[in-house]
Design a protein around this nucleic acid. Structure first.
Length: 276
DNA sequence: ACTAAAGCCTGGCTGC
DNA sequence: TGCAGCCAGGCTTTAG
C-alpha cells in the first residue's frame, strides 16, 4: 500500500526512466480514472507533450510537462506504473497508457480502481483541490515539533485518526501511523489534544525516522520490461514492521502480545504495555 | 464546523 | 469443488 516512502521511490524511478520522453499519444481506458476528462480530452491535452521531470507531493506523483501542464496521479491502494514495450500484451486493469516515440509505453495499472489522474495547468498546481490543503512535507523545515504541537492542540480526534489526516501530517498511511506510535510509545487511542508535551518531540522523530528508514530499505520500482510479474516496489521494508500486521505476536521490547483494534474502520496495531 | 460512516473496487482468503 | 462472505485501506462524499 503506497504511503510516502513508496510514492517517493515511484516518483524517483519514473523521473529517471521517463524524463525527456515525448508522449506521442495516450489512451484513457477507464474514464473514471480521470473524472475531469473524457477519453478524447485526456488524449488531446497530453498529445505531443514532453515530460520535463517527475516529482512527488504527499502521496501524489506529478509529471511536469513542457506544455505547462502537470499530470497529477494518485496510486491509492493498488495503482502502479509499468514501462513496457508496445508489443507486450497489456496487463489486466490497465487504465491509462502513454505511448512514447521509442516503441515503449507507460501503463497505469490499478486493480481496485481507486487511483486518480488529473491534468492541471502547472501555474495553478498548488491551488488544485488535491494539493492545496496538504500538510507540510515531513522532511521540510516547516514540519517541526512546534508545528506538530500546534495542530495536535486543535484536534479532539484519536491520535491514530489524526495522523492519517493528510491536511495535518502528510505522507503517513495506516502502516506508518502504527509504526510511528509504537516507536514513540504513545497509545493510538489518546486524543490528539491530550498528547503530553514531552511526547511531541519523540513523535516527530518517530514519524521522520520511520519514513526515512523505509525509503532506505526500498529499492527501485520494478519497471523491468522482462520482469513484469516481479515485485513492484522492491525493497523489503515489510519485513521490518515492528507492530503492523503482528497481532498476537510478542512485542519486540517487552514480549507482550501485540493487539489489533479497529479505529475509523481500520486496523491499528500496538503494544498495550509499551504504549500506555 | 465538526465527526462518523458509507462508498468506491478486486482478489485472496476462510469457512461451510 | 464451489460459493458466500469478509477483509485489505486512501480518500471522498454523504449523513448526522
Amino acid at each position: 500500500m503506497p504511503e510516502l516512502p513508496e510514492v517517493e521511490l515511484v516518483a524517483k524511478s519514473l523521473n529517471k526512466l521517463v524524463s525527456g520522453r515525448k508522449i506521442v499519444s495516450s489512451e484513457l481506458k477507464r474514464e473514471r480514472l480521470s473524472p475531469n476528462e473524457t477519453i478524447k480530452s485526456f488524449s488531446k491535452k497530453l498529445k505531443g507533450s514532453t515530460i520535463n521531470y517527475v516529482h512527488r507531493r504527499g502521496k501524489h506523483v506529478l509529471f511536469d510537462l513542457n506544455s505547462d501542464q502537470t499530470l497529477l496521479t494518485h496510486l491509492r491502494m493498488t495503482g502502479r506504473f509499468l514501462l513496457l514495450p508496445t508489443e507486450r500484451e497489456l496487463p489486466k486493469h490497465s487504465h491509462a497508457i502513454f505511448y512514447f516515440e521509442d516503441e515503449t509505453r507507460l501503463i497505469f495499472q490499478d486493480q481496485r480502481h481507486f487511483g486518480l489522474m488529473k491534468i492541471i495547468e502547472t501555474k495553478s498546481l498548488l491551488e488544485t483541490k488535491e494539493l492545496k490543503d496538504l500538510a507540510p512535507e515531513p522532511f521540510s523545515d516547516e514540519f517541526n515539533p512546534k508545528y506538530l504541537k500546534e495542530v495536535l492542540a486543535k484536534s479532539k480526534r484519536p491520535l491514530k485518526e489524526f495522523l492519517l489526516d493528510q491536511t495535518k501530517v502528510c505522507g503517513l498511511g495506516n502502516i506508518y501511523v502504527s509504526e510511528s506510535l509504537f516507536i514513540s510509545k504513545i497509545n493510538p487511542k489518546i486524543f490528539a489534544n491530550d498528547v503530553p508535551s514531552r511526547k511531541i518531540e519523540p513523535l516527530f522523530q518517530a514519524i521522520r525516522g520511520v519514513l526515512a528508514e523505509s525509503i532506505s530499505h526500498g529499492s527501485t520500482l520494478n519497471v523491468d520490461p522482462e520482469n513484469i510479474d516481479g515485485s513492484y516496489y522492491g525493497g523489503d521494508y515489510e519485513n521490518h514492521w515492528r507492530v503492523y500486521g503482528q497481532e498476537n505476536e510478542p512485542c519486540i521490547n517487552c514480549k507482550t502480545k501485540i493487539k489489533r483494534i479497529v479505529q475509523a474502520g481500520r486496523s491499528t496495531f500496538y503494544c498495550p504495555k509499551c504504549q500506555k
